[in-house]
């Protein structure tokens, strides 16, 4: 009972957004909870009035690029932390930990200047590359790599396999579930980014869908709530689906990363 009520309260805003996206203008103003007919008119109108498709495509590209970049960089770094012994490794590890203490927002002004001077404003490069390195993802994978028996590494040493080949041929296939978890997490976070895209894009061709929402909300269509909610639905649908598909995995992965 408590479960049902709290469940409904928690999802109500989301559900309501879906319902409103099917309503006609008058229904919204009357405050109905259920649309009379499920009309797709609002969706058509949303795609019509803002370049939603371009925004969605940009968001997809940005998210996929960030996801791929993070997977590559984090797994490379985690591999070095677990399987390559060298002088100064500890020190670099502390350097990685220290990055978690710097709030990204505190660095946004110089970062904006850097991206500007690189000519990366309004480009995928500017939207993605600053986020490729991630301490959390590195730690998560490092934890996972550590569960690989060291004998596996020693056996390939005896067989004379190179480190790179051990990395691609053994480590990556063995931890592919955790890689998937990290991929989901990366994608979700990247898709939902707001402040940075707001700073580094200022034209419609390069905007991501989150900024598109801000645009919808501030333009004259803001009073047309049905259309705005149709936009909201288009934004949240991909991530909700991804979340529902990967919820269990995400939960396990995040817990692992959180607790040592």
């Amino acid at each position: 009972m408590t479960l049902t009520v709290s469940g409904l309260v928690m999802v109500f805003p989301i559900l309501y957004a879906f319902l409103i996206s099917f309503m006609q203008g008058g229904e919204v103003l009357q405050g109905s909870l259920w649309p009379e007919t499920f009309s797709l008119a609002n969706f058509v109108s949303a795609f019509d009035r803002v370049p939603l498709l371009t925004y969605l495509w940009n968001s997809l590209m940005v998210s996929v690029l960030i996801m791929a970049g993070q997977l590559v960089l984090c797994s490379l770094a985690a591999f070095a932390f677990v399987f390559v012994e060298f002088k100064g490794r500890e020190w670099i590890f502390y350097l990685f930990i220290s990055t978690m203490m710097i709030p990204w927002e505190a660095t946004m002004v110089p970062n904006f200047q850097t991206v500007q001077s690189l000519g990366w404003l309004n480009s995928y490069a500017g939207l993605t590359i600053p986020f490729f390195a991630m301490a959390f993802g590195t730690f998560l994978l490092r934890q996972q790599f550590k569960t690989i028996p060291k004998e596996l590494y020693e056996a390939s040493q005896i067989a004379g396999i190179s480190k790179l080949r051990f990395f691609t041929g053994v480590v990556l296939p063995v931890v592919k579930t955790t890689m998937t978890t990290l991929a989901i997490y990366s994608f979700l976070t990247a898709w939902n980014m707001y402040l940075w895209p707001l700073l580094v894009t200022n034209n419609e061709a390069n905007r991501t869908v989150q900024i598109g929402l801000k645009q919808m909300q501030t333009q004259e269509i803001a009073s047309d709530w049905g259309v705005v909610m149709a936009g909201v639905v288009m934004v949240i649908l991909p991530t909700l689906i991804l979340l529902f598909a990967g919820q269990k995995r995400l939960q396990e992965g995040l817990t692992q990363g959180a607790l040592k």
Binding site: N192, I236, L243
Partner: peptide
């Protein structure tokens, strides 16, 4: 799934 749903929701939406 219901309780974790907001994790898939962007700040903007």
């Amino acid at each position: 799934t219901m309780f974790s749903a907001t994790m898939g929701m962007s700040v903007a939406a």
